[in-house]
Write a protein that binds this DNA or RNA. Structure first.
Lengths: 154, 154
DNA sequence: TCAATATATGTAGCTAACTACGTATACTTG
DNA sequence: CAAGTATACGTAGTTAGCTACATATATTGA
């Protein structure tokens, strides 16, 4: 017996987390194999700044769908790597505006082809009869409609 | 623009992790709402010991599909809760055998109906056109066949 | 039979998200 | 226009898995 199979759906949380970790580890190795010093978790920040070049911390957090403390810790790492920089907002002194550095913009260009091979590989990998990206979206929509908790209260 | 949608599949790792966390938090609240002091992460250990009452640390880790250090840390928590206990294997002095306590067995009985409502709710929640449990299994099978990394090397 | 290897368990420290809380600045309203 | 509320940012500490390394016991083969 393998409890992961037997217990089925009650282990879903762990299954999701472990698949996530595996993909992330591989993602890191793929950047490395392409001579790029970049971590998968930085992707949403850098990618967002490509399209919205100047954002405050909270705006950026909202864009990438993270909490602001998580975003701040990513920004600290990216600042250490000199991929982003920040400046005060003159209109609103509370805000810190985030921008890509020249190094960040250059790296972004270098990563484009790697991203393309990753998108292709992931598309192939997840092109199964139940598409995992669609499945995630569907479950998120279901949860939005009625939480897991509420569904246990009949 | 929401980068989570735009960047699509490259953010898959984060998406998986966050869905995992959300379901786990709700799981904890559901136990609590039913007056049960139990954490979702403990489930695989307790459930396995229900069917295989005496297992060594490594055997248990293999059953639940975790590394042994992760398993040890779960066992420490469960021992503190007095839900499990352990004893030395007389045949092999290296081994520590894990068992449910009476309290553990009793709690397990109390949790059965809660597990049933959770299974029902999760089944409803994930009963979408792309089934997420099947999708996970399919992706894991794909990865087993050929890793993400190898798929980027054309 | 004992040296080399394998296995079982344990510890330390990492990771990548989170919540809770605190402070500074801006906005609103009586 | 000042008091209360809201917003922006930051810090501290938690979580639930992991890898790398260390030690103890068992097994194997020359």
């Amino acid at each position: 017996m393998n409890v992961i199979n037997e217990s089925g759906i009650l282990g879903i949380s762990t299954r999701l987390q472990r698949l996530s970790e595996q993909l992330r580890r591989d993602g890191f190795q793929i950047y490395k194999a392409n001579g790029i010093d970049f971590e998968p978790k930085w992707f949403p920040v850098i990618y967002t700044l490509h399209f919205k070049p100047v954002l405050s911390v909270v705006e950026l957090a909202a864009e990438i769908g993270y909490t602001h403390p998580s975003t701040i810790s990513l920004l600290k790492e990216l600042e250490k790597e000199k991929l982003i920089r920040s400046k005060k907002d003159k209109q609103d002194e509370r805000k810190r505006l985030i921008l890509l550095t020249e190094k960040g913009k250059k790296l972004l260009q270098q990563m484009q082809p790697v991203w393309q091979t990753m998108v292709d590989a992931l598309t192939e990998l997840t092109n199964t009869s139940n598409n995992i990206m669609k499945a995630i979206e569907e479950v998120e929509a279901q949860l939005n409609d009625k939480s897991f908790m509420d569904r246990t209260k009949k």
